[in-house]
Computed example of a mutant assay.
Amino acid sequence: MDWHAWHDAYDLPDSGLARRLRVVQERTQVALDGSPPGPLTVISLCAGQGRDLLPVLAGHPRRDDVRARLVELDPRNATIAQDMVTASGMDRVEVMTADAALTDHYRGMAPAGIVLACGIFGNITDEDVERTIGYCSQLCATGGTVIWTRHRSAPDRIPLICDWFEERGFERQWLSDPEVGFGVGVHRFTGRPDPLAEGERMFTFIGRQALQAGPAGNGISGEGL
């Protein structure tokens, strides 16, 4: 999969990715608006070109309160994100070209007030989805927000994902309507964050096509949403 070209669909206003992006940006705006006053840390896993966060943060009244780290493996996408950061003068935002699955890349940032986990759950196995949600209790501060996405194609794992979050001390704040064709969820962490584990892998990013090609009935399918 060419993950740089994959982003082209964001520029098609009626595409599923563009519609999902608008919802994620709205939820990010709400999370920024609702965060307590003072310094605020934001982390974005598999951040791509930074579209979930950067356009919202650039014009937000809280931008100077925010210290953010976006982690993205594809250097072309990371460069686009960095160019947006530079053009907007957001000198407290860091773009890291690295594997977002590795816990070490969040050292010094976790636990964060806002965690973006968008475009991941549709590209990894169910086991890794649950495993990553477990790590969210290390990445997210008490009272912090996780914004996540997952496609609604069969098997629809959205209810299960909500259960996994809620079993780990997260409260459901918002969930997109099933009729829109994609899933965007917002969960607030009510527990106490565990220390960030060192040197661990949260997930293996497989990708939509490989998941779809997996053995029938194994519960691994995805559309990258």
Rank of each mutant, 00 (worst) to 15 (best):
R107H: 11
Q49E: 15
G169W: 01
G224F: 01
S15Y: 10
D104Y: 02
P111V: 04
T142G: 13
G199H: 08
E130S: 12
I114V: 13
F121E: 07
Y135M: 11
D52Y: 04
I220C: 13
P61K: 08
G185D: 03
G89W: 03
E26G: 09
L225N: 09
S35I: 09
I120G: 06
D14L: 13
A210I: 02
A112F: 01
A98G: 06
V180K: 07
A112H: 01
A210K: 15
V115N: 05
G119K: 02
G191I: 02
V129Q: 14
G48V: 03
A210H: 14
G89F: 01
D33F: 06
V66W: 01
G222R: 06
P39L: 11
N218W: 14
R76P: 00
P215Y: 04
A68T: 00
R69V: 13
L116T: 04
Q49T: 15
F170P: 00
P159Q: 08
T142H: 11
H105V: 12
G207N: 02
G185R: 00
L225R: 13
I120Q: 05
G59L: 10
R107Y: 03
N218V: 11
E171H: 10
C136W: 11
D163K: 12
S221D: 11
C162S: 13
G108Y: 04
A87H: 01
V180D: 12
L53I: 03
T142A: 12
Y106V: 05
G199Q: 04
F121W: 07
D83S: 10
W164E: 13
T79F: 00
A197N: 05
V129L: 12
L32W: 06
R188F: 03
T79P: 01
R67W: 03
L54M: 09
